[in-house]
């Protein structure tokens, strides 16, 4: 269920990028996509009834069913990278605003 919701999130994010000319909103769309893909990765690695892949006193051995630790490692990295890209995107957005006085790409015209 949540798998499909996360895939839907990616589609919504794409729609967000397509439906606007505003750079901030494009970045919001990208973030929605990223959240979607992150949840999807975790959902793929999820085993129903599995425990968190953390060794502790409560789950001492490998006898227990773990959810996939690789997927979680991926998502951790992916979140951090997403932050970096978003920050850089905002820097560019500020530069656009500074140069053209607007966040709207359609008002900038054919800057090539």
């Amino acid at each position: 269920m949540i798998k499909f919701a996360s895939l839907l999130l990616i589609v919504i994010g794409l729609y967000g990028i397509l439906s606007t000319r505003n750079v901030i909103k494009i970045l919001v769309g990208i973030n929605v996509m990223e959240i979607g893909i992150n949840i999807f990765i975790i959902a793929i690695g999820f085993v129903n009834g599995g425990a968190a892949p953390i060794l502790s006193v409560d789950n001492p051995g490998s006898l227990l069913k773990f959810v996939d630790p690789v997927a979680q490692a991926l998502v951790l990295t992916s979140i951090v990278i997403g932050l970096g890209v978003t920050a850089l995107g905002l820097v560019f957005a500020r530069k656009i605003h500074k140069k053209h006085g607007t966040y709207d790409l359609s008002e900038i015209g054919g800057e090539s």
């Binding site: 949540i2 996360s6 992150n38 949840i39 975790i42 959902a43 999820f46 599995g50 425990a51 968190a52 892949p53 953390i54 959810v67 979680q72 998502v75 951790l76 979140i79």
Partner: peptide, 10 residues
């Protein structure tokens, strides 16, 4: 959602 899917650290 992450918490629900047993990924507390995420």
């Amino acid at each position: 959602a992450f918490a629900l899917l047993s990924a507390p650290d995420v």
